[in-house]
Design a protein around this nucleic acid. Structure first.
Lengths: 154, 154
DNA sequence: CTTGAAAAGCAGTGAAC
DNA sequence: GTTCACTGCTTTTCAAG
């Protein structure tokens, strides 16, 4: 990963609709050279895909919750069952297996309190093997996700 | 937000490079009608932009940390100073103001332990007004972020 | 006024120099 | 590595319901 690639990745993870020509002279490369590098980054897997970034507010998502979950058993079977259930639940936006007190960190987005209540009742409370759940509500987004800090740490 | 729009948003937040024609007959719409709806969603702000999704593993990001931070003072001035510092720190990928015990939840991605140590020393430990920091390391990603659950809750 | 079809413009892609 | 030509998508316009 050199400096040029970092610049390309930084630019297209902000906006992938930027024409190659514009991107190229922003970086100081010829369009064809820039195009080639992008292709290499795509085939190399650094670029996993191109997606639309939606605005949660405009879609009516006003609630965001980080939920810490501890299981009753720390056996592999318990983890597998829990994770299978998580993967089958589209309302769980993210899920991480954690080191430390809690076993899992879940991220839930909901339209409002009633919607969260629905998700909780129909999905979260049915997750298998849960000993303890702690919901942490976000009040405000100070900095939303805007991609990886590529190039900050070269 | 009707069902058709939900289908469009679900599709393009997975892949925005899908040709309009393909998307259209996937949904059962004429290409021009589909194109028109996408334009409305763009100008309405539901679609905030189009970005490349990068693969953290391929970029060498192996460490992900959720950090809970409590400030020494809960005054507006303390919050403002802290948030200004957060916004000036590119290594902080996300930041939320929280309800509950901790004041803020930060998300940090790092290449390795040494890189995290560098971030901690050069940026995190310099954040103003911090009383308590708790780092929660993720061991494994069970479900990565793949967009909002549009259409699951209509 | 809304919807579908066709044509034109433009950027991406690959080949040749 | 650069230029050029071609292909295919996007976008606009026009016509019909």
């Amino acid at each position: 990963m050199d400096k040029i690639d970092a610049k390309i990745l930084t630019a297209i993870q902000k906006d992938c609709r930027i024409p190659i020509a514009t991107l190229a002279d922003k970086i100081g490369l010829s369009p064809s050279a820039c195009h080639r590098r992008v292709k290499i980054l795509e085939s190399g897997g650094q670029i996993a895909g191109y997606v639309a970034r939606l605005d949660p507010k405009a879609l009516g998502y006003s609630i965001e919750i980080f939920m810490e979950i501890t299981l009753t058993s720390q056996s592999e079977e318990a983890f597998d069952k829990f994770e299978t259930a998580v993967k089958a639940t589209p309302e769980i936006s993210e899920c991480y297996f954690m080191a430390g007190q809690a076993d899992y960190l879940l991220r839930i987005v909901a339209k409002n309190v009633a919607d969260y209540e629905r998700i909780h009742r129909s999905a979260l409370s049915r997750l298998p093997g849960v000993a303890h759940m702690q919901s942490n509500f976000t009040l405000r987004t100070v900095r939303p996700w805007r991609g990886y800090p590529v190039g900050e740490n070269l």
